[in-house]
Amino acid sequence: MIQLDQVTVRFRIPHERIPTFQEYAIRWLQRRGVRYSNFNALNNLSFSVDQGETVGVIGPNGAGKSTLLKVIAQVIRPTQGRVRLRGRVAPLLELGAGFDYEMTGRENVFLNGAVLGFSRRDMARRLDRIVDFSGIGDFIDAPVRTYSSGMVARLGFAVATDVQPEVLIIDEVLAVGDAHFQQKSAARIRKFRQSGSTILVVSHNPASIKALCNRVLWLERGVIRLVGPVEQVMQQYAPDAPSPFSK
């Protein structure tokens, strides 16, 4: 269950260059502050997701989709309003966040696990299962800098989804690795969905939204443009959605 009550996230956009202490001191002496304008990435947004629902978040760039996910993942706290949720959040926002590329894959499983809040002992117990799912094989003892980007993402996915989370946040990472791994990861997400995880998906791909979600939240400039059943919203958002490469 996720509940947002009148959530506003406000960023300050400085009108001049990044304030250094020097700059700040000069301005203070001259009695003119640094000028800012406020930008509400989310504006008084109220929204809730029930336990076990899969909700798609769509909208143009800058609509506030990523900010919404960050507020739910507790990366940023709302400027105003209240965010509540139950259970552990697995953010698939940045696969392999905190990977140290000089370290081996094995060391990074522990590091990434710790970043996600798991204890070392817990990770040791689950290491084999994670390595197995990632399909990294013998490369697990090679430094991550020798990995292809697909392998990095696969390992990150394997760590982040090893334990079923109550809340899963997916940001455009449905296409991880090669075709085989994509099947595997999609199957895992479907399994989570069936067994009661609450899932939030941000994607620009209408096909994956339609395939996964029950409900869709259409954001524009930090406010809700439309929210409702997937067919209804997608009908208005992208009626026929041709591939950008088709003529």
């Binding site: 139950r86 809040g117 079923q164 109550e166």
Partner: peptide, 29 residues
Amino acid sequence: MAEQPPFIYDSAQRPPPFVDEFVQLLRYR
């Protein structure tokens, strides 16, 4: 469902940052 006991996050009701940060650091030791 998950192996860890579920906890509730509420952005409006949390201990003062002075305490909260310390508790979180212990959790992420």
